[in-house]
């Protein structure tokens, strides 16, 4: 795609394989409010796929629908060819779909280690061993420590989460995802609340995590930070008022007139592709 291509949505090149996650006509209404409206979204395995859009575009609601927190009013969510629309929320993690939250959603009165250990334990088979001390299950504890080392939180492993600074809590969100070794990572504004200088380091951690696994992880990132989105994404979807406005590579999106007019505008004009 060369510079200067404008206008209509570019022809979508079909991904080589079937999408790992897709939605068909996914909608969620709250009374008269159409938070998500007829979204057809396709996620290719191994992609780093960002979703952008102004506040209220429905991005978080969309992630909630993908992760099973909300059930759609209409439409389907399909994972590896199977309809998971009506799966109860707690089954989603077992499929390999992990989620981090825009507003930190961890266990505030437990230690950092325990938070991650619980994430590791969840997908194991030892949850109903009622009469064995939990510390005997070393595998979860060791995995938790390794993950904490990876994100740089090993030093505060024994601290209570409520005593952590905001940046560490965001890392903890990421750590809990890592501990579950999910195939698909749904990240909802992971850098929310971080100071500007902390963002690049954090995002390189995210990218490193996504790339380092045996099979590349698939990432869906909801973000406001345009430089992050443009530099890291393989594909970008743009949402506006609950609908999917455009989808394509960063270059395509940057060049897309409709998107630019809608609101990228001044936000984007001083960034180079």
């Amino acid at each position: 795609m060369s510079e200067g291509e404008t206008g209509q949505l570019p022809l979508e090149i079909s991904p080589p394989a079937a999408p790992i996650l897709e939605t068909q006509g996914l909608s969620r209404y709250f009374g008269g409010l159409k938070a998500v409206d007829g979204v057809d979204f396709k996620l290719s395995s191994g992609d780093f796929h960002s979703i952008i859009g102004p506040n209220g575009a429905g991005k978080t609601t969309f992630l909630n629908l993908l992760s099973g927190v909300l059930k759609p009013t209409q439409g389907k969510v399909i994972f590896k060819g199977q309809d998971i629309t009506h799966l109860p929320a707690h089954r989603i993690a077992h499929l390999g779909i992990g989620r981090s939250y825009q507003i930190t959603n961890v266990f505030p009165n437990l230690t950092v280690l325990e938070n991650v250990r619980l994430a590791a334990q969840a997908l194991g088979r030892d949850n109903f061993k009622l009469l064995t001390h939990y510390q005997r299950f070393d595998v979860y504890i060791q995995r938790a420590w390794r993950v904490l080392e990876r994100v740089g939180l090993a030093g505060v492993g024994h601290s209570l989460v409520s005593s952590l600074p905001h940046g560490d809590k965001r890392r903890l969100e990421l750590a809990m995802l890592l501990a579950q070794d999910n195939e698909i990572l749904l990240l909802d504004e992971p850098t929310a609340g971080l100071a500007t200088e902390q963002v690049p380091e954090f995002m390189s951690l995210v990218k490193e995590v996504a790339a380092s696994a045996q099979n590349r992880k698939t990432v869906v990132l909801v973000e406001h930070n345009m430089s992050v989105v443009m530099s890291l994404s393989d594909r970008i979807s743009v949402m506006h008022q609950g609908r999917l406005l455009a989808e394509g590579t960063p270059a395509e999106i940057a060049a897309n007139q409709t998107v630019q007019e809608a609101y990228l505008g001044s936000l984007y004009s001083d960034l180079d592709i």
Binding site: A89, R91, A93, N105, V106, F107, A119, A122, M176
Partner: peptide, 13 residues
């Protein structure tokens, strides 16, 4: 501590 998060981690609370 946080039932919703426990559910999302995969626990059938």
């Amino acid at each position: 501590d946080n039932e919703d998060r426990a559910i999302m981690l995969g626990y059938n609370t």
